[in-house]
Amino acid sequence: MSGMSRIVKTITNVAFPIVLIYGLYVIAHGHLTPGGGFQGGAVVASGLAMLLVAYGSIWVIGKVKEKQLSILESIGAIGFIGLAFLGILMVFIYSSFQGNFFNNFLINQNEIPLFNEIGAGLANINTAGVIPLMNFAVGLKVIAGLFAIVLVMAYATRIKEGK
């Protein structure tokens, strides 16, 4: 797929950062406002798909290869599963914790001051334990995965257009 006209490219230049910031906001505030890793990742991947439509897949694949996106997606998946397994492993470090798969080990303790606050209606970003970190991991995974799908399928159509 080759690029579109100058008008489309200009509008994309204006709209793309706004879409990116909104999607990253949805991911970062997943434990406070509606949305989360999957939804924010879909928003960011839509913005990247808009870039792909406006500039063409040949231009985009000169900037980023699908192998790099595949590595990013694997980092997200390993981070998600690693956080789940840390719930078991933390019992060896701090004996006061109760070890479980998907245990929220960051919440309600004073050893690690990261996302450890608790309480109703705080609307504070420093709450909810391991949930924001899992949101980041899943968001990275969804961004890289959906953009890899769209990029690979768009690049496969260049043969029909004779390029």
Binding site: G30, L32, G36, N108, G119, A120, T127, A128, V130, I131
Partner: peptide, 17 residues
């Protein structure tokens, strides 16, 4: 939800915790 996980968004608390 808010007292056990600290998350204000109950849907995310159910999905991730």
């Amino acid at each position: 939800t808010q007292n056990e996980t600290g998350a204000d968004n109950g849907v995310t608390a159910v999905v991730f915790d």
